[in-house]
Design a protein around this nucleic acid. Structure first.
Lengths: 217, 217
DNA sequence: TAATTAATAGGGAGTACTCCCTATTTTAAT
DNA sequence: ATTAAAATAGGGAGTACTCCCTATTAATTA
């Protein structure tokens, strides 16, 4: 698969732009058609030339409009353009945002030329590329964070049991029936759970239950 | 890192057990110390020999007790043992369950010898291994499913806006203040949203908002 | 043994949410 | 231009939740 790929680069540091361009220059089927130090430049360029662009490689941390926002807009206006998001860090939040913005790929900046070319290759073939480093991040989000949150709150087993039912949309009455308790008891547990989890209402409790892995969305 | 790794295998098909054992036999630092056609056998074996085991490779689809359950129990009783979960399929639910069960690795069965050895190598070094195939799955879960859920409900923009605030733990009063509305209006929107999303209470709405990507947990 | 915590249950009050209505205005669509 | 849908607002009733208390029992811990 060595069809011509026209690429737009966006990064607020000229050095990074130069570096990327240099890394891409070795492959003759990769053609950088536009570079920009800000996101608006990219959008302006695409207004006239979107059809000939196949790939956008953008940094996340950009002044005024972030790479995430740029990604969202580009995917909305020009869905045919693949977006590869570059980031210095691999924080849970950023990775998640990138995924939600429908980025086709996510890559750490310290990847180097080989990884970049591999990413582009995989984007062209499989449609997506997410660097291996982010798996532990997602893993963390699912597992370690959850445990920490859960153990921090000090919920008793009974409280956890009731929290699960709350989060499964049981009313206090239904919980009382199911566990053979008085509604008052359930109410007391609710209060204690709210306090321990530092939540304002059941809405917070659901999110807590999800965060801590007690239930799945 | 070629320290001796003692491995337990679990799969309800003898052929798969044989295949795995064969694949592992080429590396002299990998030693299969026990194989079992069911999960109970593994637990019984570990009761006496857990200390000398470093890795459990288990299929997911096992009669009576699933590989997920086995994984949970093993990680609970013998946290030092790494668990690599094998699965025929790469469904969202299964991957999620594996992660929640604290599997250290997840791998598709069609991976072949090289992938298996690479997985074990990575498990030994980095502590985790998740095959690349599951990223699009998580991606799907985050993105495509969400969009579908959202568009299915037919929420208006205003309703979405209010749903987000509900899910962010705003009370009706706070929403009214923020959007310069009457509490009654907010209440009406709540009802309509509940109906459209087929939820019984705000608890359901939060989960809906998360599922459809309107908010993050 | 004494003290603490968890689980149970209740009283009483206030708040928040849910449901069933009607109704007006604005916007969008046929 | 008529219809339909969305957004607004309200009345009234009932339910559910949240908060502030007290109190008993069982189990755990110091």
């Amino acid at each position: 698969m060595t069809t011509q790929t026209n690429i737009v680069l966006a990064d607020d540091h000229q050095i990074v732009l130069d570096g990327l361009q240099f890394m891409l220059s070795s492959e003759k089927y990769l053609q950088v058609v536009y570079t920009s130090l800000n996101t608006n430049g990219v959008l302006q360029y695409l207004e006239t030339s979107a059809t000939k662009v196949q790939l956008l490689i953008t940094d996340i941390n950009m002044p005024t409009v972030s790479g995430i926002e740029l990604c969202k807009k580009v995917k909305e206006l020009y869905p045919h353009i693949k977006v590869l998001v570059l980031s210095m860090y691999s924080s849970t939040e950023i990775v998640k945002e990138a995924i939600l913005a429908e980025a086709d790929g996510y890559m750490l900046k310290d990847g180097g030329k080989e990884k970049l070319l591999a990413a582009i290759h995989k984007l062209n073939n499989d449609g997506t590329y997410y660097s291996e480093e982010i798996i532990p991040i997602i893993y963390n989000q699912f597992s370690i964070e959850k445990k920490a949150a859960l153990s921090a709150s000090n919920l008793s087993d009974r409280e956890k049991e009731i929290l699960v039912l709350i989060a499964k949309e049981y009313s206090s009455e239904q919980i009382a029936e199911k566990l053979f308790l008085s509604i008052k008891t359930v109410g007391n547990h609710r209060q204690n759970i709210l306090a321990k989890c530092e939540c304002k209402s059941s809405v917070g409790l659901v999110k807590y239950a999800i965060k801590s892995g007690l239930i799945t969305v």
